[in-house]
Amino acid sequence: MLVAILAIAALAAFFGILLGYSAIRFRVEGDPIADQIDALLPQTQCGQCGHPGCRPYAEALAKGEEEINKCLPGGEALVLALADLLGREPVAMDIKEKIPSVAFIEPEDCIGCTRCIQACPVDAIIGAAKQLHAVINSECTGCELCVEPCPVACIQMRPIQEDIQRWRWPYPARQPVESDSAAPLRDAA
């Protein structure tokens, strides 16, 4: 009996020492998961998630300190992608998704105060003090961060117009009868 106890204890002690050594020897630094999350985020830097930019939100997610449904520009697609990456349960978005828009500065009202320029996270507004400001449409991420600071409320968000270049083929309306079932089982392979 005593022999059995001692043998097991010795074995356990040996493996404990081995594990203790391994824990020190093979420690991994850094947090690559945050990079992966950051790559999924839309990089609007809009701050609507409550974090100052996309990277901080990614880091918070990586630490498990945040919900995955905070990114409004990413929408439901992002929630599903994050749920997939982080192995979490998908959660519905708080608010409906917005239509993609860009900021537009009313030229007549702009007083050239540069506050919107300071607010823009991606330098998509050009202009100088006391000069008319203008939005570079192709750079604007639609984050709306410039709308609030404008003292004369001359910035509006305008939906991006559909044109031939931007047009997408619609998802077929003629669905097979079992259209509501999700991805088929056969695809699991």
Binding site: P42, T44, C54, P121, V122, D123, E139
Partner: peptide, 16 residues
């Protein structure tokens, strides 16, 4: 296209 745009936005944000 969106991905390219977000890549661009990331770079511009970092630059800012």
């Amino acid at each position: 296209q969106e991905k390219r745009k977000s890549e661009q936005a990331r770079a511009r944000h970092a630059a800012k």
